[in-house]
């Protein structure tokens, strides 16, 4: 990939006309850092260090996520962006020997002191590859509400419909809700996974390279979807695709070798990055 920063800047400008109900006022101007101060901070990570056994994977990360905004985390593979994302809903506990230090606060509550199930209900996640359960479309979406005891059958059915509508999948699947989710295309499966995450009404939605297994059409649909969703929740997306970050994100953080190099308004990152490493990365000198 060899994008010039000029193309990327165009991509940033070009996102305004994308469909979705975000108003032009949502688009940060050139003074993003000032605007950030008045934003409500949904999620704050302070002094986060992360270790896999003896390997120090993240160094002193300080990062805040604004409510109802899309924040992209970019960087070359192995830079720690996915690790950081997973620690935001404590999925890092999946890995033996993984250890997190520092504090992560969700609405003034330390997530490390919360019940993990409760945390994960509030902070949903969509994975790199679509991972629907081997169940019907309906049962996939109903899974979250059911295990979390969210109401009776009637209510769950409503939630399923709502979530599919929110994930822009309803029209495509409403006639085959009880067929296997594996009959859907890759892009549809990924939107199904988003709908599944939405069904428990998360406040934060984490997406770990959600389009890396999709074709361009599937990718475009997901990106459109993100715009419509940001009114409803705070979105953090990890991507290795800088164009994508430029298209969808309000803010962008650049990770390199376990460190957060730079974090700012997306437009600023792509037009006048403050750090040499960031510039090297987005102009394609490495990564």
């Amino acid at each position: 990939m060899d994008p010039s920063s000029g193309d990327l800047a165009k991509a940033v400008d070009a996102r305004t006309p994308l469909p979705g109900n975000h108003s032009p006022a949502d688009t940060p101007g050139g003074i993003g850092s000032d605007q950030m101060k008045v934003q409500t901070m949904k999620l704050k990570a302070s002094n986060v260090n992360f270790f896999y056994g003896g390997f120090h994977a993240l160094h002193e990360i300080n990062l805040q996520f604004s409510a109802n905004k899309i924040t992209a985390l970019i960087g070359p593979s192995g830079c720690g962006k996915s690790t950081f994302l997973r620690s935001l809903n404590r999925l890092h506990e999946t890995i033996r020997g993984a250890r997190l230090e520092g504090t992560i606060v969700l609405d003034n509550e330390n997530i490390l002191a919360m019940n993990a199930s409760a945390l994960r209900r509030r902070v949903g996640m969509v994975f790199q590859r679509p991972n629907p359960f081997p169940k019907s479309i309906f049962d996939n979406i109903a899974y979250g509400p059911e295990i979390n005891g969210m109401g009776n059958h009637q209510h769950v059915a409503e939630l399923v419909e709502q979530s599919l509508i929110r994930a822009a999948l309803w029209e495509e699947v409403k006639d085959k809700l009880h067929q296997s989710a594996y009959g859907l295309s890759g892009g549809q499966q990924q939107r199904l996974c988003i709908a599944r995450a939405l069904a428990v009404n998360p406040e934060v939605l984490l997406l770990d390279e959600p389009c890396s297994a999709l074709d361009p059409i599937g990718t475009a649909k997901i990106e459109e979807l993100l715009f419509t969703l940001k009114d409803q929740c705070t979105i953090v997306i990890v991507t290795h695709n800088m164009q994508q970050a430029a298209r969808v994100a309000d803010y962008t953080g650049f990770f390199l070798m376990g460190k957060l190099i730079e974090f700012d308004d997306t437009k600023k990152i792509y037009t006048t990055p403050g750090k040499k490493e960031t510039e090297d990365y987005i102009t394609g000198r490495f990564g």
């Binding site: 890092h92 506990e93 019940n115 993990a116």
Partner: peptide
């Protein structure tokens, strides 16, 4: 592997 669901 699973994440622990209890308070870590």
């Amino acid at each position: 592997t699973y994440p622990s669901t209890a308070n870590s």
